[in-house]
Write a protein that binds this DNA or RNA. Structure first.
Lengths: 142, 142
DNA sequence: TTAAACCTTAATGTGTACTTCAAGGCAAGT
DNA sequence: ACTTGCCTTGAAGTACACATTAAGGTTTAA
C-alpha cells in the first residue's frame, strides 16, 4: 500500500504520516526498490493508535516517550505499567474536566429562561463544582 | 483587586488575562485613576468560565463568538440555544474520544502479560470500538 | 532619592503540530 | 515526447495561544 492509500485508510494526511515516522511515533516503514514507502497492516494499526491518543490530547513528545518504552527490547514491564497508569490518570482527569464543562453548559441550557449568564445561581453552581473538584482531589491525596 | 491578585486567584497568568480582555473573552475591565486594571468578582467569574471552556478544548475564536452572542443586547435566544447545543455536542464527542482512548489503555493494562502492543486481540478491540462509534454516529443521524 | 514591586502598551518571540513548497524521480497513458 | 499522477526529501511557512521583552509610569519603604 502506498502512502496515499494509507492516508485514505486512516484519515491521516500523507505529510502527517511522514512526520509521524520522522518523529518515531510509528516504526521505520519499509521501502520499495525506488524508495517509496510500502505500508502494511501493522503500520496502519500504529497510525490508528497514534490518532486515537492524539485525539485524546496526548502530545507528540509524550506519545514518543511512551512508544519508545514499549518498543524497547528490555523488559520494562514495571515502568510500562506505571506509564500506562499515569497516562490513564491524565486522561481521566481530562475527561472529568470535559464533563464538568458539559454539566455547566447543560445547566445554562436548562436555566435559559432568566438570561442567566452572570446570575447568582450560576456563580453558586460554579462554586459547587469547584468545591466538588477540590473534594475529589483531597480524596485522591489520601 | 489588581491583576496579580486576580492571576493568583484564578491560576491564569497576568499576560493571559490581558490577552483575554483584548480578545473580548472577558468584558472591558475597569481602571484605576492611573490606568491599572481593577478586577472585581464578576471578572473573576468570567475568567473562570473561560478557563473551564478552554480546559474543555474550546478555541479562543469559538469562545469569543459564543460570548459575543451571549453578551449582545438583542434577544438571540434561539441562536444562543443552538450554539449551546452545538458546543455541547462537540464536547460530548471529545469526551467519548477520550473514553475510547481510556478503554484502549485499560485493555492494554489488563492484557499486559502477552507483550500486547500489536496483537490480534488489540486489533479486534480497536475495530470493535470503531464499529461502536460508527453505530453511535448513525444513531445520532436519525 | 533610589530601589523594589507593582502596573501599562506594543511588539516580538516561542512551542506545537503539522502543511505547503520547491525540486526532482519514476511509471503509465496518449 | 509529454502530460499525469504518484512518490521522495528538506526547508520554509502557518495557526494558535499565549510568554517575553522593551520602555516607561506609580507607589511604598529604606
Amino acid at each position: 500500500m502506498n502512502i496515499k492509500e494509507a492516508s485514505e485508510k486512516t484519515g491521516v494526511s500523507s505529510a502527517a504520516i511522514r512526520y509521524y515516522e520522522k518523529e518515531s511515533l510509528i516504526p521505520p516503514i519499509d521501502r520499495t526498490e525506488v524508495g517509496n514507502r510500502d505500508i502494511d497492516a501493522r503500520i496502519i494499526r500504529r497510525i490508528k493508535f497514534v490518532t486515537q491518543m492524539r485525539a485524546a490530547g496526548m502530545s507528540i513528545e509524550n506519545l514518543r516517550r511512551y512508544i519508545e518504552l514499549f518498543d524497547a527490547q528490555e523488559d520494562n514491564t514495571k515502568e510500562q505499567k506505571a506509564l500506562l497508569q499515569e497516562q490513564l490518570a491524565v486522561m481521566e482527569e481530562k475527561r472529568d474536566d470535559l464533563q464538568a464543562a458539559i454539566d455547566h453548559l447543560n445547566y445554562k441550557l436548562n436555566h435559559f429562561y432568566d438570561h442567566m449568564q452572570e446570575t447568582e445561581e450560576e456563580l453558586r453552581e460554579l462554586e459547587k463544582q469547584h468545591a466538588a473538584k477540590v473534594e475529589r482531589e483531597n480524596n485522591e491525596a489520601d
